[in-house]
Design a protein around this nucleic acid. Structure first.
Lengths: 345, 345
DNA sequence: TTGAAAGCGCTAACAA
DNA sequence: TTGTTAGCGCTTTCAA
């Protein structure tokens, strides 16, 4: 195993001082072209790489972002991560990723662990338990200690920081509105997001779109699937569809939307002729179901990219004020909804 | 913004020396219980956290693992990551993750960038381009420089390091064999893995299982879907099923298996009565298709856990020899294959 | 039981 | 243009 090359070694071998080497490697104008060339060539040849820890210690920065994600198996978060990683890399940053599995404790511990020079800032989405318990002091402390945070998707008003959010209300409103334009009258709402704010926003969008289209709200058409195992979805969705002549469905996640598709088919309903179905989160399931699912796309990658860009901007010029960026959702029309025909202009 | 607490500050405020503080915080026996208590209490109160970079610099280790993954949107890799992250955390390690998007250059650059104290070792799965070009020197260099590597899933004989692999041959053999036991005679093979070794192993397993069951191999039943966009799958799968009376399918990924299901249904075939379908990678799609897909599970999480455990073991006692661990696949029977009835004992 | 001092690898102000 | 030196925050040897 080869010893790792250091500046000191280079200096000794080449008979110059340590600082000369340092400056030469950083392409300083203080050093003559000749020595620079010599030192750089030697460094390259010997595969010299500056020790990150030493550089970080000196510069008081790590060029590393701490990314805290509730669950990497959730395709939406994997999309956000992918976007984040891409931008971070382009801008010369690394990403340390932690998964909370929705646990408050894991979230708090992770932040604690990383807030000591390991990372320069956080990009995170709040764990469900944290949001339920409304325990936000770990975020506030980090910010107070000078570690900036960019929250995405699952955010809270209780913490003053940069935020990248989906227009959950609008997305849901628009999807519901779309169904009414398709002449749906009995639109069901499948809720899977429990205590999360974004779940409430989606629900409100649904309610308001109904109201604006003069469709009476029917409590029976709303079912809560939070904490229900996906295999049990059909048991709850089947009676809903059967009893109420449901002709439209808004689902807050993909899995429940797919389940609705399968249940509808089993009940002999034609999709989209008899019933139109829209799900949130434009993930893999939507693209492979039969019929393919119309979804409200949240643009996960873009959210990730935007979040990292914002964090790095903040790191590189400290003063910038906190902002909240809304990434518009868009309705990706596939085959689980009728085509909307515009009747002349 | 509060200043960050350092050992030096603690020492000054408490009127003791820096080394006393250091020792007290590390619970050294050299320090009296009284001073220890005082210092520890003060540190806790003031939210002292040792600076990671300083500690790393001193200890020549970062307690960080570099994880290099071809694509986080691939559910299998997300599973591996999840398992890896869990174990790393339990054992006090952090994970810096990079995504290669199958690019050789990204892979090499990433390793270069991290091999300087940022990480203590790598856990990685080889990018497709790398495997195609057979350019493995970046791996060898890292190892030579003293940075251990654990490869998983996509590995190569050309590099001597620890490896965690799936028994692709056995998994495929077993799946094919299972179909023959179900009385399938015309078993198609959908290949999606291009130049990857694991694709070849799966193919060989299929071939050998056919031979062992005295089923003549029919070249026409094998189609290559590598680099075919998933939306185009049906165009290639439809004629295959139609022409050859296919009654069994082995697919090397989920998406093509799901596509086979959808095509079969469109052709009026009953699943599993008329045709049985098995796909590799036990991911989300399998659980939400209709009928649910029987899959060869690779136990992604376990692979991730095993890989990280092996790496940390190696880091903590240098001498251990390189090993290759095979994680057995298992056939997860769902509804796309007939139930196998054991005819008396 | 406590403290002084060297050093991890690097940067940068200042001196030569 | 080059070198000396101090110091980033911490650990650890050795001396007190």
């Amino acid at each position: 195993m080869k010893q790792k090359m250091t500046i000191k070694q280079i200096a000794q071998t080449l008979g110059v001082s340590i600082s000369t080497v340092s400056k030469a490697l950083n392409d300083s104008h203080e050093i003559s072209e000749k020595t620079k060339a010599k030192i750089q060539a030697f460094a390259k040849e010997n595969n010299y790489k500056p020790n990150t820890n030493a550089v970080n210690l000196k510069n008081r920065s790590s060029k590393t972002i701490g990314m805290i994600i509730p669950n990497m198996l959730n395709h939406f978060f994997a999309q956000v991560f992918s976007g984040a990683e891409k931008v971070a890399n382009e801008r010369g940053y690394k990403i340390i990723t932690c998964v909370t599995n929705e646990s408050y404790q894991k979230e708090a511990e992770t932040m604690e662990m990383l807030s000591n020079g390991s990372i320069d800032g956080f990009v995170l989405s709040i764990a469900e338990e944290t949001q339920m318990k409304k325990k936000y002091s770990h975020f506030k402390e980090a910010i107070e200690q000078g570690t900036p945070i960019v929250m995405f998707d699952r955010v809270t008003d209780a913490v003053d920081c940069d935020k990248i959010i989906t227009d959950d209300f609008d997305g849901s409103y628009h999807a519901t509105d779309h169904l009414t334009k398709l002449q749906c009258k009995n639109i069901a709402f499948l809720s899977t997001l429990g205590d999360l704010n974004i779940g409430k926003y989606r629900y409100n969008g649904y309610i308001e779109a109904l109201a604006d289209n003069n469709i009476p709200f029917n409590k029976e058409l709303v079912i809560d699937l939070t904490n229900v195992y996906y295999k049990e979805y059909p048991k709850l969705i089947a009676p809903l569809l059967k009893k109420h002549g449901v002709d439209g469905v808004i689902a807050t996640n993909e899995a429940s939307a797919i389940s609705a598709i399968n249940v509808a088919k089993e009940q002999g309903l034609s999709i989209p002729e008899d019933i139109s179905i829209i799900g949130f989160s434009n993930g893999v399931l939507s693209r492979h179901s039969s019929p393919k699912l119309t979804t409200v796309s949240q643009h996960g990658e873009l959210i990730g990219k935007t979040a990292v860009n914002k964090l790095i901007d903040k790191l590189e010029r400290k003063d910038s004020p906190n902002t909240t960026t809304v990434i518009k959702t868009s309705l990706v029309e596939r085959n689980s909804t009728k085509k909307y025909i515009h009747l002349h202009g």
